[in-house]
Design a protein around this nucleic acid. Structure first.
Lengths: 106, 106
DNA sequence: GCTTACCGTAAGTGGATGCTTACCATACTG
DNA sequence: CAGTATGGTAAGCATCCACTTACGGTAAGC
C-alpha cells in the first residue's frame, strides 16, 4: 500500500501533466473538459490521466455518461512525505556545507 | 535572473539525477567519484551534471586536477519556492473538496 | 617533456514518450 | 431502436532521452 507503480516525480516532470494535475486540484473535471482547455487532443489527455492515475495522484469516478477525475488525497500525502524526506536529506548536509562556506579545504 | 534554462522538476524527474543531487547534497564530490558510486559511466554522469547545472541546481568549481560539484543554494531556494506555490495552489481547492467528502451530489 | 589522471564533448544507438488519427464500447436522448 | 456524446485503447510516428565508446584538452607526477 506504500508502493506505487510509477514515480510521482517523473509523472509530474511533464509540464502538461503538471497543468492537468493543478487544474484537477482546482476543480474535478471530465476528460473532454480538460482536453477542451488544453492544446492537445482528448486521447492525449486520457493517456496523461492514465499516467497520473498509475502514479496514484488522481482517481476517477464514472458520472453517468462522463468520467470525473480528481486529485487523490493518499497520493498527494505520499508525495508530500517523499518531498519532505527529500528536502530534509538534501538541506541537512547542505546547511552544514554553508557553514564551511568561508573556507574549509585548507 | 528568475528564469532558468530548463525545468528543475523535469531535471529531478530522472531517478539517476535525483540520486546524484541527493549525494551532492550530502557531500560535494568530483565527477569520477560520483561515477564510481553509480552504475553508469563517467560521461553519463557528466551529462546528468550538465542538466542539473542547466537547471540551476548545482554549481561546479575546478579544484586542481578535478572538478567539484555541489548543490546551488539559489537553485534550491527557487525550487523550494516553486514547490510551495505548487502545493498551495493544489491543496487549497483540494481541501475544499475534502470537506465535500461526505456526500454532496445525491 | 612524457606519461598518467581527470573530465567535457561529439557521435551513435536502443528504448521510452508524447502526440496524432482510427476504432470500439458504453451511456444518455429522441 | 437509431443517433449522439463521451472516453478508453490500438496503431503509427516523430522526437527525445539516457547511455555507451571514442576523442581532445588541461592539470599533476616522474
Amino acid at each position: 500500500m506504500d508502493a506505487y507503480h510509477t514515480d510521482a516525480w517523473a509523472a509530474l516532470g511533464d509540464p502538461t501533466r503538471r497543468a492537468i494535475f493543478e487544474r484537477l486540484a482546482t476543480r474535478p473535471s471530465a476528460v473532454g473538459e480538460l482536453a477542451n482547455a488544453l492544446p492537445i487532443s482528448r486521447p492525449a489527455v486520457s493517456q496523461h490521466l492514465k499516467v497520473l492515475k498509475d502514479a496514484g495522484l488522481v482517481v476517477d469516478r464514472p458520472a453517468g455518461n462522463r468520467r470525473i477525475y480528481r486529485v487523490d488525497p493518499a497520493g498527494v500525502a505520499h508525495l508530500r512525505k517523499e518531498l519532505d524526506r527529500f528536502w530534509s536529506s538534501a538541506l541537512a548536509a547542505f546547511k552544514v556545507a554553508a557553514e564551511h562556506n568561508e573556507e574549509g579545504d585548507s
